[in-house]
Simulated assay, not measured.
Amino acid sequence: MKPINPIRLMLIGLVMAIAGWSATVVTSRFSLATPVLPATALASMGVIVAITLILGIRILRWRNSNRDATKKKTVLNPILAARTLVLAQACAYAGTVLLGWHVGIFLDQLRIWNLRSDQGITWVAVAMAGGGLVMIVVGLLVERFCKIPPEDTETPGEGKRSPRGEAAGEGEYAYRGD
């Protein structure tokens, strides 16, 4: 698997901000409800972040315990590692979508901030954008946890080679797919 490209995340966030802003403009013109997630969605986001972080910490502990060459190397379940990596990347992408969408809503709500007596929707949009940002940070952090450090060899640059010709540990994750 390839690591997440931060530029791709920024582009997705920008597109979703434009989409969120456009949807808010359209719904307000037709006197419909603002398309913001309810505040209870923060609890779901918190559960997803907690599960991702717990699984990531398990991978990090395995990786750190195998650094010492004198200790017996334990085997990591490759399915667990692959699922953790996929969950981390999904968390980052979902956080980007949520952040972008709710930033767009927030930007539209700012222009009528003084005209509204109830600014609850604006604060919910800010909270959801903050939750999206937390999801992005945790996703990228856990993705980094899943990265295998380069293997130490006696001669520098003479490690095992992957089928693509890269040295072991270069751009690879805990799940190698060999």
Rank of each mutant, 00 (worst) to 15 (best):
V25Y: 15
S28N: 11
L115D: 15
S22D: 05
L11Q: 06
R116G: 02
V25W: 14
R111N: 06
N114Y: 10
L87K: 03
G95T: 05
A90G: 14
D118L: 03
I148R: 15
H102C: 03
L115T: 13
G56M: 02
K147G: 10
L42T: 08
E154G: 14
M135R: 03
A43V: 14
L115S: 14
E151V: 14
W21M: 12
Y175N: 11
L11K: 12
F145E: 01
N64H: 11
Y175G: 06
S31L: 10
C146Q: 06
A39D: 07
L42I: 09
A129F: 09
D178W: 13
T27N: 14
G157T: 00
F145Y: 14
W123L: 13
G20R: 01
Y93V: 13
L32Q: 09
M45R: 06
E172F: 03
D178E: 14
V142P: 03
N66Q: 04
K73V: 14
I105A: 04
K71I: 08
K147N: 09
P3Y: 11
G159T: 11
F145W: 05
W101Y: 06
L98Q: 09
A90D: 02
G100I: 00
E166P: 00
I148K: 12
V36E: 10
A50D: 05
R111G: 04
N114I: 05
I48P: 00
D108V: 04
N66I: 04
I121N: 05
V97N: 07
M128D: 10
L133G: 13
G56Q: 02
A92S: 13
L76V: 00
A127E: 13
M10G: 10
P78E: 07
G100M: 01
P149A: 13
